[in-house]
């Protein structure tokens, strides 16, 4: 009896949860479906759900019309480049904070966090003018620099929380055996911290891929990553839903998959270790 009641309860919860999940996911699903329709079918009334003529022409057309892969490549370069550059600077810093903490380590960490809370409009104008004067407007290298700096605090913090879980004695032992600082970090710490570094890498690629304040303000046709490229659909000509959907699907799909893999680290990274 009790078992039947539990099962019935489970069935009800299953139905509710799936309904809610599909409703929340629906805008994404709808975008993917629309990307396979013709432009006429994309605005048909009543809307067609699955029974339409599936086509790939939107994907081909998006590429032909606007050199989609240039923008895709820009997104890859900017998000991966800024993350790797950030890791390069952050690994040594996080090493010292986790294993050689001093009186001021805590203050430095908190201060780094506070830079993340600076609203971007507070520094928009100087950055814009500096970029203009140094010829960095609409350049990939400029965007890599800015995104490295805005995500650096998160990278340092995430690495710090992961490094702290590694017993310091192992590093000390390697030091006793005569390993220099470089060997200690490269050959002792990094191999042990691979999972933590991987999650940091993943989360920061996601954040950089989706960053849409600096990329919109500092890029034009040449260096525009997908965030800025998609924004060009805000002033469209003629029917464009299917093409918008195809461009959006390609922009979102890779990062959505990465995001699904990193859902655990997301909580930790975005709350700076306050919730684990």
């Amino acid at each position: 009896m009790a078992r039947a009641a539990t099962n019935r309860h489970k069935l009800v919860v299953t139905l509710i949860a799936w309904t809610v999940g599909i409703v929340i996911f629906f805008p994404i699903l709808w975008t993917v479906l629309t990307s396979f329709k013709t432009e006429a079918e994309a605005v048909a009334t009543p809307p067609t759900f699955l029974a339409f003529h599936w086509t790939l022409e939107n994907y081909a057309e998006v590429q032909q019309r606007s050199d989609y892969f240039l923008h895709f490549w820009n997104s890859v370069v900017i998000s991966v480049g800024s993350t790797l550059l950030g890791l390069l600077v952050a690994v040594p810093a996080a090493w010292s904070m986790a294993f050689v903490p001093g009186k001021r380590t805590r203050d430095v960490l908190m201060w780094m966090l506070s830079t993340k809370m600076l609203p971007p409009v507070g520094v928009l104008i100087p950055i814009y003018l500096l970029f203009r004067d140094f010829g960095l407007l609409d350049s990939r290298i400029g965007l890599v620099i800015v995104l490295t700096l805005i995500n650096l605090p998160i990278i340092v913090w995430m690495l710090f929380t992961y490094f702290r879980e590694i017993p310091g004695e192992i590093l000390e032992a390697s030091r006793m055996d005569g390993a220099g600082l470089r060997e200690e970090i490269l050959f002792v710490l990094l191999p042990m911290a691979v999972p933590g570094i991987a999650s940091t890498l993943l989360l920061n690629i996601i954040l950089a891929w989706n960053e849409a304040f600096w990329t919109l303000n500092l890029s034009a046709s040449q260096s525009a990553p997908l965030t800025a490229f998609i924004a060009s659909y805000s002033s469209p000509e003629g029917l464009f839903y299917a093409k918008l959907s195809a461009a959006s699907t390609m922009a979102v799909a890779p990062i959505l998959v990465l995001g699904w893999f990193s859902q655990k680290q997301l909580v930790r990274g975005l709350t700076f270790g306050a919730v684990k």
Binding site: F25, I230, L244, G259, L266
Partner: peptide
Amino acid sequence: RLLVIAPFFVMPTVSALVWKNM
């Protein structure tokens, strides 16, 4: 769970334009 967390990974310009138009 995957369905529910998905919107977080959609870039702001895409979600805004999809909601606005479609």
